[in-house]
Design a protein around this nucleic acid. Structure first.
Length: 415
RNA sequence: GCGGUCGUAGCUUAGCUGGCCAAAAGCGUCUCCCUGUCACGGAGAAGAACGUGGGUUCAAAUCCCAUCGACCGCG
């Protein structure tokens, strides 16, 4: 008996295979999420710059926080004493937590380097590129990486104060039980795309063992088991055979839902996704971890993904860039100083109506926090509407058209 | 009128006991980057008759003279 209930309402017919777009509902103890859905990221129990009430207005139905960050600050006990993540942050809707597995990557192999969730691919050599940089060398030589992996778990050096900490699958689940989100992820190892095949395989197998241990720990806690759902994470890097193997293995463990993890190059994403989905049961909700940019989300939806989370909306917003139907624009640029047109004349976003590019450009350029707030709200609202539109498209049987229209305007339209 | 201080990138300045300065930094500008947040962050670029003219010297942003401008003090 799962703490959540996933129902598929409508599928986009596909001649080949079962991995097409679908629309559904995901019922959690704190409410219903209409899928596909975008999950705003609230790492430290807050979506940066956006009040929960505003998130509701923007159309968010669920938020995602992070185990590693909340464990370090303020500590999971505080969140638990507050009555759980939702109560703590004054968000009454559904919640999720990520396991800290991504930090294995971002504080480990990726720390101080130019590789992140997405990596450029050298198309000639067909391998990921790591661009050396001064930043890279200085940071790496001074601090080294902050996470060291072994088969049992991961030892972290806190990025806040340098203190030493250790996560195991058991500990991650225990913390996530305390945080009390409706859905949470098994502890995994997100590998760098620069690692060779052999390491990808080794890490994937380790992630599988960790998945089993995460699930076992969860099942042992009867109370949490009733209230919270656990998602297993598929890894396997950029290799389709590993992706398939990982999907089969994770599917066999009877999780409540599935996360597709990993760091990709743009070119590898579709193949890795399709390979995984082809081996996964259709009826489980699937979360495409850390995705993404508008086009990538639509790609994921087309590939059968139901949930998406991504920091890009709030991060680029905080730095003064906004999504528009015609692509991203950087409001920091001087050319927007006297542009009194709306942020995006083709879309209306709750709470940001009436603000002009000139005004927000002024705020951003003068370092006013309201500039970051407005851009973050705009971007989160933009992505939520994009996904909502895709959902409606699926229900109306015109998803492909919707996607093609959006992509042609966003990526080929002039600004 | 006399005495003094100062004039170096859009801005603020460093250099000014002559050579490593065909000039450096911060801010600003421009371009690019950001995909389970180490991130209100990162990378790169453009941008200077060193006020002007003359002199000393192998060599001047740097020393000398003149001149223009700004400011301060005294008349």
């Amino acid at each position: 008996m799962s703490a959540i209930l996933f129902k598929i309402e409508q599928r986009v017919a596909r001649s080949s295979g079962k991995s097409g777009a679908r629309a559904g509902t995901l019922t959690t103890p704190h409410g219903v999420i209409r899928t596909p859905a975008f999950v705003p990221v609230g790492t430290k129990a807050n979506v940066k710059g956006i009040l929960p009430s505003a998130l509701v207005e923007l159309g968010a139905e669920v938020v995602l926080a992070n185990t590693y960050h909340l464990y370090l600050q303020p500590g999971e006990k505080i969140v638990q004493d507050a009555g759980g993540l939702g109560k703590f942050m004054n968000w009454s809707g559904p919640t999720m937590t990520d396991s800290g597995g991504f930090q294995v990557f971002s504080l480990g192999a990726a720390f101080g380097k130019t590789i992140t969730k997405f990596t450029r691919l050298n198309l000639v050599k067909n391998e990921p590129v790591v661009t050396p940089s001064i930043y890279d060398e200085e940071v790496a030589s001074q601090h080294g990486q902050l996470a060291i992996i072994d088969d049992e778990g991961v030892s972290f050096t806190s990025h806040l104060d340098g203190s030493l900490h250790r996560f195991t699958p058991e500990r991650s689940v225990e913390i996530q039980h305390a945080l009390g989100a409706d859905m949470f992820f098994a502890f995994d190892e997100c590998t760098s795309p620069t690692e060779p095949y052999e390491y990808q395989k080794e890490a994937m197998e380790r992630t599988h063992r960790w998945a089993e241990r995460s699930l076992k720990t969860h099942r042992q806690n009867m109370d949490a088991n009733k209230k919270q759902a656990i998602f297993g994470i598929v890894q396997g890097g950029r290799h389709e055979d590993l992706r398939k193997e990982s999907a089969r293995e994770i599917a066999s463990l009877c999780f409540d839902g599935i996360g597709i993890g990993g760091s990709f190059s743009k070119e590898d994403m579709r193949g890795a996704l399709q390979a995984a989905v082809s081996e996964l049961p259709e009826e489980l909700p699937k979360h495409f971890l850390g995705i993404g940019e508008p086009g990538d989300i639509l790609e994921g939806i087309a590939g059968g993904m139901d949930l998406f989370d991504c920091v890009a909306a709030t991060r680029i917003g905080r730095h003064g860039s906004i999504y528009t139907k015609r692509g991203i624009i950087h409001l920091r640029g001087e050319k927007h100083k006297n542009d009194f047109s709306p942020l995006d004349s083709e879309i209306s976003i709750a709470g940001t109506e009436g603000f002009t590019r000139a005004y927000v450009s002024h705020l951003v350029r003068s370092g006013e926090m309201l500039g970051s707030v407005i851009c973050s709200m705009h971007n989160v609202g933009f992505i939520l509407q994009l996904v909502k539109g895709a959902r409606q498209g699926i229900l109306d049987g015109r998803f492909d058209e919707y996607r093609a229209d959006f992509v042609s305007n966003y990526y080929h339209g002039k600004l």
